[in-house]
């Protein structure tokens, strides 16, 4: 049999023009977005005096490692790193455990009051007591200035809870429950033996959502932590960037000028060093994000 080679259909001219303009526009927008990130990377290996007079555009005239050397010697950075990793890992683990259990309970329609509790939890998404009552509560619970304050108050995000509950309701058919209970399976056994193994997707999604939130959290540390040894990475970064912008009229300007110079040296390098983990991890977890967004949505 003869194999006929089909000729590729030419797209009409207007389409091709559109393609060309489109591609050009997208490249431009991409460059505009990518350039600042590229600039930060280049600025971290350039002498700050050159960066600050605006002479750095594409490549540094000479490679300058002083910034990174100073950064690696800056010990609060490393305590901040360790603290952030600890808070993220511990916090995510605790959050996932609590969220899964709660979502399971809320997803079972035969649980007494499950509608009421769902409403109650959703209410807190819109209204909260405010900052000062939270502060007083944290003081009274004696978790002020301890590592618990980074993990407990933010343990459950109601949005994630609802996503998880919807997943349990939609992706795991009720017939499984009926079949299992006929065989004498209790509620706990059902959760551990049947639901959990089927929930790998939602666990991945929760890890991602909670992990990202905990890694970037800084407000709790700002308000509730005092010891600089407990500060997470984001606070260390914020403090450093604020050194050069002290508006304290009382500080003598001598030390301000010195500090500004030090802060300038460290600024770009610290940004690179603190953003690096997230930047490295994200591309690998990208597909889970995309899948995860649709998980809590429509049935079927």
């Amino acid at each position: 049999m003869q194999i006929r080679v089909k000729k590729k259909l030419k797209r009409p001219a207007s389409d091709r023009v559109f393609d060309a303009v489109n591609i050009l526009l997208m490249i431009l927008i991409g460059l505009v977005i990518a350039y600042p990130l590229y600039f930060v990377l280049m600025a971290s290996v350039t002498d700050p005096r050159i960066v600050n007079t605006g002479k750095l555009i594409l490549f540094p005239p000479e490679f300058y490692t002083g910034g990174y050397v100073k950064t690696f010697e800056y010990s609060p950075l490393w305590t901040g790193y360790l603290n952030s990793i600890f808070y993220t890992v511990a916090g995510t683990a605790l959050s996932i455990v609590i969220t899964l259990f709660t979502a399971y309970a809320l997803s079972r329609e035969d649980m007494f009051g499950h509608n009421f509790f769902t409403l109650l939890f959703s209410f807190t998404m819109f209204f909260s007591g405010g900052l000062i009552p939270s502060y007083i509560l944290v003081q009274n619970l004696h978790i002020y200035n301890t590592f618990w304050v980074m993990i407990l108050p933010s343990a459950v995000n109601i949005m994630n809870l609802i996503v998880c509950r919807t997943f349990f309701q939609n992706s795991i058919p009720k017939e499984l429950l009926e079949a299992a209970s006929i065989d004498g399976c209790g509620d706990f056994r059902y959760f551990f033996s049947i639901m959990l193994p089927l929930s790998s997707t939602i666990i991945a999604v929760l890890t991602l959502f909670y992990g990202a939130a905990k890694w970037n959290s800084y407000f709790d540390a700002l308000i509730y932590l005092i010891d600089s040894k407990k500060m997470p990475l984001q606070i260390v970064l914020r403090n450093l960037l604020l050194i050069g912008q002290s508006t304290d009229m009382v500080d003598d300007a001598q030390s301000m000028a010195e500090r500004q110079r030090q802060a300038e040296q460290l600024k770009y390098c610290i940004i690179v060093v603190s953003a690096a983990p997230m930047l490295i991890v994200y591309p690998f977890l990208q597909k889970y994000f995309a899948k995860g967004v649709m998980i809590g949505s429509l049935k079927g």
């Binding site: 000062i132 502060y135 007083i136 540390a221 700002l222 308000i223 005092i226 606070i235 403090n239 002290s246």
Partner: peptide
Amino acid sequence: FVGIPKANFTEQVNLMLASRQ
């Protein structure tokens, strides 16, 4: 002696003053 990092100082002190701790 309790030393609050300068960058967090204003917020924390305001909270202390508002909540009387």
